[in-house]
């Protein structure tokens, strides 16, 4: 049958669902082993964080899209959690091969890492759905009440109070760890990257400034070429 925009969008969502294990709402045996190998087991903290962020996400999704859509928000969050666990496991497999270590206690107890990784997984889910929403015209009512736009990037950063610079850190590793991402989704993540690099990371309060200050202090002896006018 001919490929219609609706059919293409439905295929993207089905592909995303199909690539995630149906039992993936919990860490796999392999991922649970990484958790257990840690000096401090992060399992409980990971679970608690997901519960807290899940409630926050559903609430904010309902506020943005409408109270009748809270259930859709929960569905998207559940899909995001499955992608989060899958990508985390693949990242740790890669890091184990690269560094020849199995104890990732520091990384796996870093709340910012988990929040950034989950935000990236949710952005992939949201972009897949939003793409379909625009294509099938559900939100395209031509007015200013364009609900689909409200949950697009950088919406997720505000929901999780996440610094754009921290979100930026996970994007490349995420794409490397999840080879089944469609070209459209990769392009979307690259657009997020560019937005962060060009604008969002330079807003007041960004951790980037503190990092630059530290870098300047530690490398004060190095000769830095003066910038061109």
């Amino acid at each position: 049958p001919p490929q219609t925009p609706i059919r293409a969008a439905m295929t993207s969502i089905q592909q995303l669902r199909g690539e995630l294990p149906s039992s993936g709402d919990q860490p796999s045996t392999n991922l649970a082993t990484y958790f257990k190998n840690c000096t401090v087991d992060p399992s409980q903290a990971v679970q608690k964080r997901l519960e807290m962020l899940g409630q926050l996400f559903s609430q904010k999704f309902g506020e943005a899209v409408g109270p009748r859509c809270v259930a859709y928000g929960r569905q998207r969050f559940a899909l995001g959690v499955r992608l989060y666990y899958k990508v985390m496991e693949e990242m740790l497999n890669s890091e184990e091969k690269r560094l020849s270590v199995q104890n990732f206690s520091k990384l796996l107890n870093d709340s910012t890492f988990h929040t950034s990784l989950l935000a990236c997984a949710l952005e992939v889910v949201m972009a897949t759905y939003e793409e379909s929403s625009f294509k099938n015209g559900r939100y395209s009512n031509g007015g200013s009440d364009h609900a689909g736009v409200d949950v697009c990037f950088p919406w997720i950063l505000n929901v999780f109070s996440l610094a754009a610079f921290d979100f930026y850190k996970v994007i490349e590793s995420f794409i490397k760890a999840e080879p089944t991402l469609s070209k459209d989704i990769i392009k979307h993540l690259e657009t997020c990257e560019n937005l962060i690099m060009e604008r969002i990371a330079w807003r007041t309060g960004s951790p980037l400034f503190e990092l630059l200050k530290q870098e300047q202090e530690s490398g004060a002896a190095e000769q830095v070429e003066a910038p061109a006018s």
């Binding site: 990242m91 890669s94 890091e95 690269r98 560094l99 990732f104 520091k106 990384l107 870093d110 910012t112 890492f113 850190k169 996970v170 490349e172 590793s173 794409i175 490397k176 070209k183 459209d184 990769i186 392009k187 993540l189 690259e190």
Partner: peptide, 21 residues
């Protein structure tokens, strides 16, 4: 077609980006 440009070096990974050795 669209190809992502990977900027990280082979010796860099998510551990370094979150300051973990």
């Amino acid at each position: 077609s669209h190809d992502y440009h990977f900027g990280l070096e082979d010796h860099e990974g998510i551990s370094e980006l979150f300051d973990c050795d």
